[in-house]
Design a protein around this nucleic acid. Structure first.
Lengths: 222, 222
DNA sequence: TATTATAATTAGGCTTGCCTAATTTTTTGA
DNA sequence: TCAAAAAATTAGGCAAGCCTAATTATAATA
């Protein structure tokens, strides 16, 4: 009974937003949280949640927030898969830097073709992670295993490797770039300041950099 | 004074349609012709022509039809460039057949990024023609030289090569495929029937095929 | 608990881009 | 030239998605 309907661009963006918010796990996915994520008005969100509910893509209850149904989840995961595959394409094949790929992938993720994600996946050599270290959902919807800790939770004097950043905004990524921090790069945590939780790390070439607590909370290491 | 505004998806499709109709040169580009091309209602077309006129992307006069302005032309050519580059990507890199690429490129052509067309072009090795033999506009808007004649206008007993088809619909392309006709393929025109203008051609392996006058009018040879 | 702040909802409105039906204009050809 | 056919336009409407402003529920706190 796979009544496979199609989603509008806007519906896809809502499902993706709900998926990300569920994943982050800051409690229930409220209308306000979605509005903030998508930078639009709570009243608009209520409209859309109604529509997504009617289409059985989510369950919505004012008190419990929005929850993806199995089919909503499937749609959302596919969008994330496409987004991350396209990011790899843009980065690896077209030479875009990691701070440029997100916005373009934001458009490419909506391209509809049954075969395209798998063909792209194969063409790219079945990558496991995107240029920000985020795991790429497989064709079956599974996410590759991924273990890491926040840089802000790391132990001093341990050699680690940057494996993911959880903020793909150009501003943040360019800031990291400027500090000399990139994906898969070894770093040594020298000290964590007590008073402001800022982290002093040593990069290749003995270069030392202070990262604010805010930044350290967006960097995952292993 | 390059007041570079952005077009909606629908506006882009109208500009592209007008571009193609201008190119075909069946006289003026009327509202009805556009409606037919886009498979929508003439009343809707009038709406949109008004909007495109206001934005100075076209000039519209009921009697003279729609004509792209310089800036409208620029937008249209870029869309065509993107469409054809993506078709090459889908065909050459992802292994799609020539009847599958059009519909996906129809979506990809709307992806917006200043650098993308040029980067894609470079990545693909600066192709001159798409998988249907249509010339790809260069970065500066120029079209590569292209000389060919319609198969229906060809002379009997001449060895020629299929260089372009002017109908990218899957049905037509799959029909050609089934007949054994593909791009860059040598064919010998054996005879043209007087009574129905159908064309008998010889393909590789001495295989002989009758093509209807309608089909022959959509195949370009050189 | 009562008050206040926050969240959710409702009502009403806007733009885009499409539609149908009716009307007017233009073209064609008898 | 004039009637019929074709093309263009106008009027009125609709759904998707967004908005603001006003209202109602819920949660937090003095």
């Amino acid at each position: 009974m796979a009544t496979t309907t199609t989603q509008t661009l806007s519906e896809e963006n809502y499902l993706k937003a709900i998926y990300h918010l569920e994943k982050q796990g800051h409690g229930k996915v409220s209308a306000t949280a979605i509005a903030e994520e998508l930078d639009n008005n709570p009243a608009s969100v209520v409209d859309m949640l109604k529509r997504l509910s009617d289409k059985k893509l989510i369950q919505y209850d004012k008190n419990k927030g929005a929850v993806l149904t199995a089919s909503g989840q499937k749609v959302a995961v596919l969008i994330v898969r496409k987004h991350r595959l396209w990011e790899v394409f843009l980065h690896d094949k077209l030479g875009y830097s990691w701070d440029e790929v997100h916005d373009i992938a934001e458009q490419l993720e909506h391209i509809r073709d049954y075969d395209l994600p798998d063909r792209l996946d194969k063409f790219l050599g079945f990558p496991k992670y995107d240029p920000h270290g985020d795991p790429i959902p497989q064709s079956n919807g599974n996410l590759p295993a991924f273990s890491s800790i926040l840089l802000s939770d790391a132990v001093v004097n341990r050699k680690m490797k940057v494996v993911k950043v959880s903020d793909d905004s150009p501003d943040f990524l360019r800031y990291l770039e400027k500090q000399g921090i990139g994906l898969n790069q070894p770093i040594l945590i020298k000290e964590i300041q007590e008073f402001d939780k800022s982290v002093l790390v040593e990069l290749k070439g003995k270069k030392e950099v202070y990262l604010s607590a805010e930044a350290a909370k967006k960097i995952f290491v292993k």
